[in-house]
């Protein structure tokens, strides 16, 4: 038995894989919605897992999923910061044409502006992706990732009341887009 857990401890690697890898799809989903770019999402998730592994020795809870999400969210915020200072690499996203807007705060296209006709999963993903931050993040954590208000508050580092008001706003925006879409002739 090794006296202290180190990075090349195979037991640590095994425990980490078993605890964290089952959430890979969830982490990727969150990164896709936060970054709205498949390649950036992959990079962010990889970075998240490497950071998580590094800090795994000190992990004592909460549940694995919100713990990973909190790390992932920080990685994504760093990516936002990078994009904001690199105006030559705007995100490429079919959903929205927001140019070099500071993404964490505002995307330019509102869900209301979306003319989404087919209500398949792409249409729904696009409607969610068109929500502005921080409402999108809150909505995805709740509606797609199934986190509790407490967990969302911890991940986003805001009070539970803020989680509720953001959800209310997110759902109201989505509902407008939703109703607009339903009025479209098929």
């Amino acid at each position: 038995m090794p006296l202290k857990a180190s990075d090349d401890n195979p037991e640590k690697t095994r425990r980490f894989r078993e605890a964290a890898l089952p959430y890979l799809d969830d982490a990727y989903t969150l990164a896709r919605y936060l970054l709205r770019d498949a390649t950036d999402a992959e990079d962010a998730v990889q970075e998240c897992y490497l950071r998580a592994f590094k800090h795994f020795d000190s992990y004592r809870g909460p549940a694995m999923k919100p713990w990973l999400f909190a790390i992932l969210r920080n990685v994504c915020r760093a990516e936002y910061a990078r994009r904001a200072t690199t105006p030559t690499s705007p995100i490429e996203d079919v959903v929205e044409t927001a140019e070099q807007a500071p993404l964490w705060h505002e995307a330019q296209e509102t869900p209301e502006a979306q003319l989404v006709r087919a209500r398949d999963s792409d249409a729904i993903r696009n409607m969610i992706a068109a929500l502005t931050e921080p409402f999108r993040e809150t909505f995805v954590l709740r509606e797609i990732q199934n986190l509790s208000y407490r967990e969302i508050a911890d991940v986003a580092a805001v009070p539970v009341g803020t989680v509720m008001s953001r959800l209310a706003r997110a759902r109201a925006m989505l509902r407008s887009a939703w109703l607009a879409e339903q009025e479209q002739p098929k």
Binding site: D7, D8, N9, P10, T13, R14, F16, R17, L21, L24, D25, D26, A27, Y28, T29, R32, A41, E42, V45, Q46, Y49, L50, F53, R119, D120, S121, A123, I124, R125, I128, E143, I144
Partner: peptide, 22 residues
């Protein structure tokens, strides 16, 4: 509708490879 995404197999491999190998 399933608004989830599935992580690409390639990403899974990248992460596995980046972890210390036994």
């Amino acid at each position: 509708a399933g608004a989830q995404y599935k992580a690409p197999l390639e990403l899974r491999k990248r992460i596995e490879n980046a972890l210390p190998q036994p």
